[in-house]
Design a protein around this nucleic acid. Structure first.
Lengths: 234, 234
DNA sequence: CGTGTCGTTGATCCTCGTCAAACGTTGTGG
DNA sequence: CCACAACGTTTGACGAGGATCAACGACACG
């Protein structure tokens, strides 16, 4: 799918808030030499569950949803990756096949870094290894929290929590609207419920003046109460 | 919490199926010099959510449950650690506080390895770093599967799945009984449901001749059907 | 102007959580 | 050794939360 290298600003490697921050200039150069940047149109699949990803991807621009396909093809969204994040590294490092799929939510630019280069860098740069470990441990902690939430909270509580997390991750525009455009079904696939339930609860939240709805635009009116509904956060 | 070092066979470090397998003899010696082995009685807490674990633990003997405390104190069991496994490493590496608690299910022997030694070893031994990464990525993959399961499967399906996984992890004795002793409440806290629901479903399974019950002993009679009920596995 | 996708609403059903009560088991201390 | 407490197990009854099914409106797109 789409264009290739040589474009000017594929600079994920140079950002100093990413996992690459402790690489030497030479190591960054090696990545730049071997990486492969592509633009993915909205809805384009980056990799699919069960396949072998022979490397990892660094998000340069856009938003990517990571999800698993469960019973009867139902998606469960695990998380959203944003610029600076890395995805797909799990399967090379654990040696398994990919356990999730990745799809561009908007037009996105991703750089592919080959797996053997990744492993070589981890082996030879301890600080880089620690940064990758930090990333995977952070994801692990979040996953564990999510397990507890889904197992114990009601759909209503989880939806409120998801709205708050979306605000934290994507922020609000000048109208206090969430800066992500998700279908009701996608919202349901994060919360882990039926589309209709999300719709009904969103209307309730609207009636209670917690949010306002205009198509897919969700305006946050009362995050305090939303947080209270979500029952603390974890 | 009890005895201390110098005991003869605290050999987790020498097993070649653990995360320590690629350490040099010198590095193993350093761990042996700095580690601190303790026996934990049944029910003893090893570390608690929200605390700072300044290192990690290697399980030498016994079984340890890792769990999070959710709403109104309800436990959600994340997984069981067994001899050879390491626990508690997440929080040192991600820099956060512990996001889960650990408690001995049986009398267990654990060796504590200080965090700065761990980090030093990761930094200076690339293969060790890769092994730790592999471990955390494996856990991450399992956590993601679990999220999907809890979000999409029924309690009945999940209970069947848990029974199968317990068999895979702990095996059966000569009577085809699971080699773990769990209370109904603990089973419920793995599945993510109410104790009463577990009890009812176990009786159903018994009536359908899938299992047999004798107190906490669960004998597996028909794992094929259990697997079918669990709806494939992930 | 049809076709497809998404959003919304209503009606219905069932899984599962909660409450309550009774009984068995274990452990502790007098 | 008994009494009592604390805990775990089991069963029943009840109700609510939420999944499912069906139908329809809104909107975009070719």
């Amino acid at each position: 799918m789409s264009e290739n290298n040589t474009a000017p600003n594929h600079d994920c490697i140079d950002r100093n808030d990413t996992v690459f921050k402790h690489l030497t200039p030479e190591q960054k150069e090696r990545i730049n030499a071997e990486k492969n940047c592509n633009t993915y149109k909205k809805g384009a699949e980056i990799y699919h569950e069960g396949s072998r990803t022979n490397g990892m991807y660094c998000i340069n621009a856009g938003v990517v949803k990571i999800y698993k396909t469960g019973i009867d093809g139902r998606e469960q969204i695990i998380y959203f990756a944003r610029p600076g994040d890395i995805i797909g590294y799990r399967s090379i490092l654990s040696g398994d096949l990919a356990c999730s799929s990745a799809k561009a939510l908007q037009e996105s630019v991703l750089c592919f870094v080959p797996g053997d280069l990744l492993i070589d860098l981890i082996r030879n740069n301890g600080d880089f290894a620690l940064d990758v470990l930090q990333q995977s441990c952070k994801e692990l902690g979040e996953a564990n929290s999510y397990i507890t939430d889904i197992a114990q909270k009601t759909v209503r509580e989880r939806l409120a929590e998801v709205l708050i997390k979306l605000r934290e991750n994507f922020g609000l525009n000048e109208n206090n609207e969430l800066q992500v455009s998700l279908t009701r079904e996608e919202l349901a696939n994060i919360v882990g419920t039926a589309t209709e339930s999300v719709i009904r609860l969103l209307s309730e939240f609207k009636q209670d003046h917690l949010i306002d709805l205009k198509g897919r635009k969700i305006r946050i009116l009362d995050s305090k109460k939303l947080e209270k509904i979500s029952n603390a956060f974890g």
